[in-house]
């Protein structure tokens, strides 16, 4: 029963799909095809990411991560976080387990919020698309405003949220 509960949202959506299939078959077929496609992409990308996270968990010493992303890391914290987010691949929800691991290893809340914000703004592969679709002015405005905003948001979040408190829900 507990297992079934974890799949509740999926089952609800599945029922939704059945309703749509009853009304309009071509939309339903299209949905199944798109879902299968993105599911396949994700299942392809996730295993190496989780293996890397698992390895980082075992090998990275808390002290060294605190140096790079801890409360007193200063400019290193910003640079290190930016590099991590820039080389990222995949949607934001993949960043969640990674962010928790960093938090567990001693990264400060400020850089975690900055990391999640930067992940949604400056992923290198996506920047290429943004640049070719909307040009330099738009892309640069997006990058500089986004990064500035999320850095300030990080400072605010740090005042509100306590590291230990956030880690209560840890999944790593």
């Amino acid at each position: 029963m507990k297992k079934l509960k974890r799949y509740r949202l999926f089952l609800v959506l599945l029922v939704g799909l059945l309703v749509i299939a009853y009304i309009n078959q071509s939309i339903a077929m299209n949905t199944i095809q798109l879902t299968a496609e993105s599911l396949w992409n994700m299942l392809f990308l996730l295993p190496p990411i989780f293996i890397l996270v698992g390895l980082l968990d075992q090998w990275i010493k808390k002290e060294s991560l605190i140096k790079y992303m801890g409360d007193k890391s200063g400019i290193y914290g910003i640079l290190f976080t930016l590099i991590l987010a820039t080389v990222a691949a995949g949607p934001l929800y993949i960043a969640f387990p990674i962010a928790v691991l960093l938090l567990k290893k001693g990264a400060s809340v400020r850089y975690i919020v900055f990391f999640l914000g930067a992940w949604s703004t400056v992923k290198l592969p996506v920047l290429v698309y943004e640049f070719t679709s909307f040009g330099a002015k738009f892309t640069l405005t997006h990058i500089f405003f986004g990064l500035g905003f999320y850095y300030i948001a990080g400072i605010l979040f740090e005042k509100i949220y306590d590291r230990q408190n956030l880690l209560k829900n840890e999944i790593v």
């Binding site: 999926f10 959506l13 749509i20 949905t31 199944i32 993105s38 599911l39 994700m42």
Partner: peptide, 10 residues
């Protein structure tokens, strides 16, 4: 993830 992907498709 399964739910999210189905949502994307929809």
């Amino acid at each position: 993830l399964l739910a999210i992907m189905l949502f994307v498709g929809l």
